[in-house]
Design a protein around this nucleic acid. Structure first.
Length: 261
DNA sequence: ATGGCGTACACCGTACGA
């Protein structure tokens, strides 16, 4: 089983790339962020034709998340952090059959935060606090839990091309990193770091200044897994191929593979 | 040098991203 996350930065613009990419990695479940579409504009026919059941929680122009799956979801998807009402569509959670158990998948587009101390930054920290409370309950309910998406947090110095230049700024400030560690403390693991990885592994590169060509990136897209899934995880890769294609998303997809059906 | 690039909406510029 393969699970992938990708911030596509406009699904309308990236749909053809997504459809071309899916057969190359053959994920069983894919979470997208920044679709920037209302639900009525979600490309249901194209995704169905590609062999996936689509879920979409979108809004006009900003944010928006999708979950595509080979198996149909069970029950109703959740589109908001319980107890944290928010008109911004950043959450999509669904349950899937997996090896005779319920596999819970939560797809997230964590707020960017703009600048440390800004209103958007305070919203980000409040959002992460609400998320943490929710995931504590989700972990108690679902032993097989995947929490993935664009976290807009670089957890460690090695997740930044230039840690000194980024020191203390948004994506890597101490409160953001503490929030990320708080998620791990619930019993989640950063699947990418379960394995030896190449130095300079990033998932986002600025469009400007030839950042991708020079690998001036940050690792902010993550697939967190509960302990039972960590035990079954066999590899995690960041697929840089789509980032090098014409008119790319600024993010690369992350793909995790698990033993079992 | 707070630029640079890309997307969306809509207007010929502004908001936002990370």
């Amino acid at each position: 089983m393969r699970i992938a996350t990708w911030n596509v930065n406009s699904l309308r613009v990236r749909l053809d790339q997504l459809l071309a990419w899916l057969p190359t990695q053959q994920p069983d479940i894919v979470g997208l962020q920044e679709t920037k579409l209302i639900d009525a504009q979600s490309p249901v026919a194209a995704i169905s034709a590609a062999g996936y059941y689509p879920l979409h929680a979108g809004q006009k122009t900003y944010n928006g998340v999708a979950l595509y799956s080979r198996q149909p979801p069970e029950g109703e998807p959740v589109m908001e952090i319980p107890g944290f009402p928010d008109p911004q569509r950043r959450v999509l959670a669904a349950t899937y059959p997996y090896a005779g158990e319920a596999l819970r998948v939560i797809n997230l587009y964590v707020p960017n935060g703009q600048t440390v101390g800004s209103d958007k930054y305070l919203y980000k920290l409040a959002w992460l606090a609400g998320l943490t409370d929710w995931l504590r309950e989700e972990l108690a309910r679902y032993p097989q839990l995947v929490v993935m998406g664009d976290f807009n947090i670089a957890p460690e110095a090695r997740d930044l091309h230039d840690p000194a230049a980024w020191e203390g700024s948004v994506l890597c400030s101490a409160p953001e990193r503490a929030a990320f560690q708080g998620l791990l403390a619930l019993g989640l693991q950063d699947s990418f770091r379960l394995f030896d990885q190449p130095a300079g592994s990033y998932s986002w590169w600025d469009y400007r200044m030839g950042a991708f060509r020079r690998n001036h990136g940050v690792r902010i897209d993550h697939i967190l897994v509960s302990a039972p899934l960590a035990n079954r995880c066999t590899q995690v890769v960041i697929d840089r191929t789509p980032r090098g294609e014409p008119r790319p998303s600024d993010h690369a997809p992350v793909v995790a593979e698990f033993d079992g059906p």
